[in-house]
């Protein structure tokens, strides 16, 4: 047992090996390899169309890959069926558009996974859900439906929904891109809290401040490739590639 645990420590939580993907003629992922250790926070940045969202979505097979390997805790990502569903239940995913279930209360949104997938009894699921909703600051909205919440509140509820599954890692696909500026920070604050709690995270984002503050590693993508990666301070202060310099300059312009 202890041997296994020790082994597990060294195995990356998420690992991509030589992943390739095409959309028709478009080569959206080119030989992408990436490894995320337990507790590590990896922020992926890059111009739009660089493949960073696609990369994030391949990890729980919302997008399929043409070749290469994706490993979750050393196990290959299953291709279908209950095995895939179980693997997904262990990875939290947060979307740009929140994607809360429109017909359910916030509380039901959060308890759906635990009850349907983990088979938790209602009371237990609701107790934990309310705890999580309080933690992300939307406890008062628990009995409202998504459309009654602001974008920021919806996104925080969506994070709570993912956390309710007690995931091994969280994937954030541009979680603040659809938000009004004044709501971005309330969501980022919740994410910072998660980082402090030691969550393993992959975050696709345009929030450079957030990346610099909390990332263990910044991955810069362009044209479907990982162009460079490194510690945030190194990357932002001394980008090695011309592409990264151009990208950072274009953002400063704003």
């Amino acid at each position: 047992m202890s041997q296994e645990q020790a082994a597990e420590k060294n195995v990356p939580v998420i690992e991509l090996r030589h992943v390739d993907k095409h959309y028709g003629d478009l080569h959206v992922l080119r030989d992408v390899s990436l490894s995320v250790a337990r507790g590590e926070v990896v922020v992926i940045i890059g111009p739009s169309g660089s493949g960073k969202s696609t990369l994030c979505r391949t990890i729980n097979r919302l997008e399929t890959i043409d070749s290469g390997e994706i490993l979750i805790e050393g196990e290959p990502l299953p291709q279908e069926g209950r095995e895939l569903a179980r693997m997904r239940s262990e990875l939290g995913m947060v979307f740009q558009q929140f994607n809360l279930f429109a017909h359910m209360s916030i509380l039901d949104n959060v308890t759906l996974g635990p009850r349907e997938v983990l088979g938790q009894p209602k009371e237990e699921a609701e107790k934990y859900a309310l705890e999580l909703l309080a933690r992300v600051g939307v406890a008062e909205q628990a009995h409202k439906v998504p459309a009654q919440l602001s974008g920021g509140q919806q996104q925080r509820a969506a994070i709570a929904r993912s956390l309710a599954m007690r995931p091994k890692a969280m994937l954030f696909d541009e979680p603040t891109s659809a938000l009004d500026p004044e709501m971005i920070n309330e969501v980022l604050d919740v994410m910072v809290e998660l980082v402090r709690g030691g969550m393993t995270m992959i975050v696709v984002t345009h929030e450079m401040g957030f990346a610099r503050r909390v990332a263990d590693r910044v991955v810069f993508m362009a044209d479907g490739q990982i162009v460079e990666e490194g510690a945030p301070d190194d990357f932002f202060d001394h980008p090695r590639s011309q592409r990264a310099r151009d990208f950072l300059d274009s953002i400063k312009g704003h």
């Binding site: 919302l62 291709q79 279908e80 069926g81």
Partner: peptide, 8 residues
């Protein structure tokens, strides 16, 4: 439906 695996 998602992209099918071999069994599907």
């Amino acid at each position: 439906y998602e992209a099918p695996g071999p069994r599907t």
